[in-house]
Simulated scan of single mutants.
Amino acid sequence: MASPTSIKLDDELKGRVQNVADTHRRSAHWIMREAIQQYVEREEKQEAFKQETLQAWENYQSTGLHSTNDEIENWLNSWGTEDETQAPTCHK
């Protein structure tokens, strides 16, 4: 198990955390753990998206393959309809 970590909060923020904890019938510790977990997950997803975007850009720069905005938009607009189409093929 990891060693304990302490977090220093000013009195105003401590009070706000305690109010949320009381409202949700949870401990302040639970609220802080939940908030930190959600923050870390959000940041990890954002970084993964950034890396995926950079990789896609590098792939485009090396191959020139792409789909246009209109092609993607038409495909997405077909979702859930009787005329649903396949994803557009990348081209130069």
Rank of each mutant, 00 (worst) to 15 (best):
F49Q: 04
L13G: 08
S27F: 09
Q38E: 13
A48F: 03
W30K: 13
R33H: 06
Q18M: 11
H29N: 11
A35L: 05
Q46L: 11
R26E: 14
I72M: 13
Y60S: 10
Q18D: 12
H24R: 14
E58V: 00
E52I: 09
Q38Y: 04
L65Q: 14
S62E: 06
D22Q: 12
Q51L: 14
K45A: 12
A56D: 09
Q55I: 00
H66Q: 11
E41Y: 07
G64I: 01
L65Y: 11
A21K: 09
Y60E: 04
A56H: 03
E47G: 05
E47P: 02
A56F: 01
K45D: 04
H29C: 05
R16T: 00
T53I: 07
R25G: 06
Q46W: 02
L13D: 07
G64N: 09
A56Q: 09
A48D: 02
G64L: 03
K50V: 05
Y60A: 07
A48Q: 08
E43I: 08
I36R: 03
H29Q: 12
L9Q: 08
M32A: 14
K45M: 10
D70F: 05
Q38R: 14
T68K: 04
H29T: 12
A21M: 06
I7Q: 09
A56V: 01
T68F: 03
S6N: 08
S6Y: 04
Q46I: 04
E12C: 02
I36L: 14
D22T: 00
E52Q: 12
A48N: 04
S6L: 03
Q37I: 01
E73M: 08
H29D: 10
H29A: 15
H66K: 13
Q61N: 11
S62P: 02
L13E: 04
V17M: 05
K45G: 06
S67Q: 05
H24K: 14
E43Q: 14
L54C: 02
V20C: 02
H24W: 10
E34T: 07
T53M: 11
H24P: 01
A21H: 08
M32N: 03
H29F: 06
L65F: 07
S67F: 06
R25C: 04
Q18E: 13
M32G: 03
E34W: 02
Q55T: 09
T63Q: 04
H66F: 05
R25Q: 14
E58Q: 15
H66D: 06
H29I: 07
E41F: 07
E12A: 12
S62N: 09
L9D: 08
I36F: 05
V40N: 11
W30F: 01
E58K: 15
K14T: 02
R16V: 00
Q46V: 03
W30R: 12
A48L: 10
H24N: 13
E52T: 10
A28E: 05
Y60C: 06
L9M: 07
G64D: 05
E47Q: 13
V40H: 10
I7G: 12
D10I: 00
S6I: 01
A28R: 12
R26K: 15
S6Q: 04
K14F: 03
I7S: 11
Q51F: 02
L65R: 15
